[in-house]
Design a protein around this nucleic acid. Sequence first.
DNA 1: CGGGCGGCCTGGAGGC
DNA 2: TGCCTCCAGGCCGCCC
Length: 276
Amino acid sequence: MPELPEVEVLRRSLEPRLMGETIEGVTVRVPALREPIPKARLARDVTGRQVVGLRRRAKYLLIDLAGGITLVLHLGMSGRLTLVPGETPPEAHEHVVFHLASGRRLRFRDPRRFGQIFSLPGEEIAGHRRFAHLGIEPFDPAFTGDCLRRSALGRRGPVKAFLMDASVVVGVGNIYASEVLFQTRIHPRRSVARISRQRWEAVAEAVRTVLGEAIAEGGTTLNDFTDGEGNRGYFQVSLAAYGREGEACHRCGEGGSIRRIVQAGRSTFYCPRCQH
DNA sequence: CGGGCGGCCTGGAGGC
DNA sequence: TGCCTCCAGGCCGCCC
């Protein structure tokens, strides 16, 4: 589900409410996520620790705890993390609950169980197998068109998959890849070997503006995304390409022109009249 | 080594 | 109403 904007929206909503809060305990109801939750280690690491910071790396939410421990959460496709009053009854697929000193609970719900939760010393994050290969953050000032151009050297695959490759740039998932290519008028099947410097600059710029606008609008809620307070996003009404198969192109105005194709098993949406 | 594909899971939508 | 198929925002590991 969530790409960079959704995780960032979640982080911003939780930050003021979780800072300084102490985790009194954790209940792992269903440890069998795609990668099993290391239950005992998690309980040992987080119990009694105060939240001292919330960060994001790629699509991971990082909750820093006193004593140098970091709680790592990934929402996968259907994960949701919400802060609720203590008396709130559990809902279906509520796999993990963090009990807070204030009496509130931070609960993790994930029907498809593609999410991930684990803990580790903060200094081990960079070298961890889930993080070691990750590329640059889109909002890092060092992220430029030239970064993309250099990453593309020696490659010839389609630009859509390239944008979704987290070892190139992190945070761009299936929705925003289509949106970025629509904004820059690049055909999703175009080989990265055939993209000019100028176009790479436009792509880097579009990655930042599309993700930035999505964050400003609370993320994209197609189905179940919410922030930590349960608020839905509304960027879905601003999507120009994704999910609009058969509808009119907002740029050229041609009725029914938005097309859906499948690349590497994922849907891509684009306007064949505008994107080349 | 780059890149395509299957698999991991459940649920919702739509066709018949 | 019920059954079946397809599809879904991520990511890894296995192939060629």
